[in-house]
């Protein structure tokens, strides 16, 4: 009798015995998440020249926005530059995260792989968290590159800054944006062609109400009220306090707690909306691309 493990293939490539379903382990969930990170990494590598163009654009964008401060009175110039550059960087990071999560579905629908990903034996949460993990790492890397260039160009006064608090704020705000990304991902799930464009509407609204490039106090009262609900508002408040005033976690924790609470609420809401849309798509046959 052969001592080979039952599920091994011989050189002919014919499976001998269908293997039993593999057991669930936490390591397995990590590997699934890693699969999405790895795949997206390969995609970025394939489009490397375009990545360089994109990063160049992000740098130009941050510079343009930072340069607005040169019109400010000389005594405020340094602080205004930092205020604006932080806005541009933070918005850049959150947009990348949001886009990566929302567009991962667009891309899979476009390639027609979504049916394969959806029939794979993985949890939707693991699948989506894997995509978020990728979005956060990729966004962070790109943002750091832009930050380095902007710091050099503007001689940003970062000596007072509390970098640790800023990074904590960035990470905590990522949670909310993952949640928002999941909600936005529903749109391309339901409509390949138009859904992706529609995700920009969500981004536009957040950009308007969150005080990225101006303090929210300049907004009309009604819009200002909405800013209370946007996680980006707290994300910016806390990073600015950390980088401009050197505020530490001891001072910032109430805002960070709020930000954390929004994130913790948004992820399950996002997941629930996504799963509902998935079931709807499976009932009405929206997943199929062709064939």
């Amino acid at each position: 009798m052969s001592m080979k493990p039952e599920h091994e293939l011989d050189e002919t490539g014919i499976p001998h015995i269908a293997s039993p379903p593999r057991r669930w382990t936490p390591g397995r969930e990590w590997r699934t998440m890693y699969a999405f990170v790895e795949r997206n990494f390969h995609l970025v590598r394939r489009y490397l020249s375009w990545e360089i163009v994109n990063i160049f654009y992000s740098i130009i964008n941050a510079m343009t926005i930072g340069l607005i401060s040169f019109a400010a009175p000389a005594k405020d110039k340094a602080a205004t530059t930092l205020f604006l550059v932080i806005g541009a960087l933070m918005w850049g990071y959150l947009s990348i995260l949001f886009d990566e999560v929302a567009n991962s579905i667009t891309y899979e629908r476009w390639e027609g792989t979504i049916e394969y990903t959806f029939m794979a034996p993985i949890r939707r949460l693991t699948h989506l968290l894997g995509t978020c993990l990728w979005g956060a790492s990729y966004g962070l890397l790109r943002t750091l590159i832009v930050l380095a260039v902007a710091a050099w160009f503007f001689h940003l006064p970062l000596s007072k800054a509390n970098l640790l608090a800023a990074i904590v704020a960035l990470l905590i705000s990522s949670l909310s944006f993952m949640g928002l990304g999941l909600i936005a991902a529903v749109l391309p799930l339901l409509s390949t062609e138009r859904g992706a464009q529609a995700t920009h509407i969500i981004q536009g609204v957040i950009l308007l109400v969150s005080g990225i490039y101006y303090p929210v106090t300049v907004l009309p009262r009604f819009v200002q009220w909405l800013s209370n609900f946007s996680p980006a508002t707290y994300a910016l408040d806390t990073t600015r306090a950390a980088l401009l005033d050197g505020a530490g976690l001891g001072v910032l924790w109430p805002s960070l707690l709020k930000l954390f609470a929004i994130g913790v609420a948004l992820i399950p809401i996002g997941l629930a909306i996504f799963t509902t849309a998935e079931h709807y798509a499976m009932r009405t046959g929206r997943l199929k691309r062709n064939g």
């Binding site: 995609l43 394939r46 489009y47 049916e115 062709n290």
Partner: peptide, 10 residues
Amino acid sequence: SVEASFFKKL
């Protein structure tokens, strides 16, 4: 499926 669905860039 009829259509070989892949990430074509990979």
